[in-house]
């Protein structure tokens, strides 16, 4: 995943617990990466169209979740986006713009319904040869959930972890007040924010075009591909932040919502229980879902954004 991990743990043995979490994250990454050789997801991808592969509990759970969110988002988030991700070289040092014909060809391979999961035998398979599952949009969330579990198992009552910007918090701050999570200003520098959500025992996850992009011939290509077109999603959003209970859910939902855009994304999130969102649009307006009214605080030091609240 190659992500920056930040942990704050309030406990006598914070250091040791932090190490445990790091080890667990490395373990998850090794199993689920497609950017390095080895691991279960690579095995699944390598035998696509041929045979079932036996998967560990972790991978099976994440794959099942990924399929579930592909399903309920109607493919706005699609776990089988892998062939396109590879074609664009999004995570490589040399991203490129594939030919239209190449994209059309690869789009044939993108269909989450081709992920066959056989829970009884702990195995899964991809229907068509050449299909590639990419858990990049969801494994970070899972790792954050696992970190929270490790904190709990070790008796921690107050902690947070940021897995490359995916924040999950356990309890509140040691003084009992909620954690205050800044929402990144999509146009500002790293670390600047447009507002704050105050939460306990929640996860706050963002997706935005600022995370990773490249420029070619004056056009900016960001990293969130629309599974329907094969090109970077032409969203009217610059960023979206999901607040929910499980980070794995929020991770998949933030990507899906970004692809869906403001109008559809808002409807999608409001149809889900226990999930709230903050939307930042291209024309610098900020919208939130109803449940955030009391915990979201608009605080834009850049003075470039307008808080519209709910539309």
């Amino acid at each position: 995943m190659g992500t920056v991990v930040i942990q704050r743990i309030y406990h006598k043995e914070a250091e040791k617990i932090g190490e445990k979490v790091k080890k667990r994250i490395a373990e998850i990454e090794a199993k689920m990466t497609i950017n390095k050789p080895g691991g279960e997801i690579n095995a699944l991808n390598d035998t696509s169209g041929k045979d079932y592969v036996v998967l560990g509990d972790d991978t099976l759970y994440v794959l099942d979740k990924a399929r579930h969110f592909s399903d309920i988002s109607n493919g706005a988030f699609d776990v089988t986006i892998g062939p396109l991700v590879k074609a664009w070289g999004i995570w490589s040092d040399n991203p490129r713009i594939p030919q239209k014909s190449e994209i059309d060809e690869l789009l044939e391979l993108v269909d989450y319904k081709d992920v066959l999961i056989d829970k009884d035998n702990s195995r899964a398979m991809l229907k068509k040869t050449g299909q590639v599952v990419d858990l990049g949009g969801i494994a970070k969330g899972y790792a954050a959930d696992e970190a929270i579990n490790i904190y709990k198992e070790n008796g921690v009552e107050s902690a947070f972890i940021s897995m490359g910007g995916n924040v999950a918090v356990l309890g509140g701050k040691p003084d009992g007040s909620p954690w205050r999570i800044g929402i990144r200003n999509p146009k500002g520098s790293q670390g600047s924010y447009i507002g704050i959500v105050s939460v306990k025992d929640k996860t706050v996850v963002s997706s935005g075009e600022y995370e990773r992009f490249f420029e070619k011939d004056g056009v900016r290509y960001h990293h969130i591909l629309d599974p329907k077109t094969g090109y970077p999603a032409e969203s009217d959003l610059t960023g979206v932040t999901i607040v929910s209970d499980l980070s794995i859910d929020a991770d998949a939902l933030s990507t899906a919502t970004f692809v869906l855009g403001l109008e559809e994304g808002m409807r999608f999130i409001e149809g889900l229980d226990g999930v709230e969102a903050v939307f930042i649009t291209k024309d610098d307006k900020i919208y939130i879902t109803g449940g955030l009214k009391n915990i979201f605080e608009f605080k834009d030091e850049s003075k470039e954004f307008e808080y519209v609240e709910k539309r």
Partner: peptide
């Protein structure tokens, strides 16, 4: 002291 961390 306003925030603990930023999500991105």
């Amino acid at each position: 002291q306003d925030i603990d961390i930023v999500t991105y």
